[in-house]
């Protein structure tokens, strides 16, 4: 049963990923990205990471992809890009070669390393992270004790990002240039 869910989610994820890369229209890429993110959320549920699955849907599929779509609409680049022109000679073949090499390395590491992971492995049949607490509670305890400082740093990072985005997209001057009246 779990294997069937995994295979279905994996198919959804991989089809979505190929769609993101292969779509000529950026809007279609964004929609395929949502498909991939939802597939990953299913995988999180399968591994008892329910909170992360919810965050994945709300934050990723709900906020980040919507931000992408906003910018696509704002810039008016929702027309199809031509995929057949190649500005740098040999870029595509090189990219494919690099991709194949990367896949070989990653799969080798995966196959070799999975047997040699250190740590307390769960016994067969045991649910992951199962010691009576829900995963939200466990994650919350860890985040606000062990990683409390990192959470604070995250807040600072988010603030900096918001300020930076405002500074970057603000028009200069405001009354000196011809673009000023559009603010």
């Amino acid at each position: 049963m779990e294997a069937a869910v995994f295979i279905a989610a994996a198919a959804v994820i991989l089809v979505g990923a190929v769609g993101v890369v292969g779509s000529r229209n950026p809007v279609h890429s964004a929609l395929f990205l949502i498909q991939t993110l939802l597939g990953a959320a299913v995988l999180f549920v399968l591994q008892d990471a329910h909170f992360l699955a919810a965050v994945q849907v709300v934050v990723y599929a709900g906020a980040i992809v919507i931000l992408f779509l906003f910018v696509i609409m704002l810039l008016g680049v929702d027309r199809a890009m031509r995929l057949d022109i190649e500005p740098i000679a040999g870029q595509r073949p090189l990219a494919v070669i690099v991709g194949v090499a990367l896949a070989a390395v990653l799969l080798t590491v995966t196959v070799v390393a999975t047997g040699e992971l250190t740590g307390v492995r769960r016994a067969a049949g045991e649910r992951a992270l199962d010691n009576g607490l829900s995963d939200v509670e466990r994650l919350g305890r860890v985040l606000f004790s062990q990683y409390a400082l990192a959470v604070q740093a995250t807040a600072v990072l988010l603030t900096i990002a918001v300020v930076g985005a405002v500074v970057l997209t603000r028009r200069h001057g405001g009354h000196s240039g011809p673009s000023g009246e559009e603010t």
Partner: peptide
């Protein structure tokens, strides 16, 4: 994180 029974994996995903 699920395999090693460590919730730190999920914390990393959060960040």
């Amino acid at each position: 994180g699920a395999d090693l029974n460590d919730v730190g994996g999920q914390a990393a995903v959060f960040f």
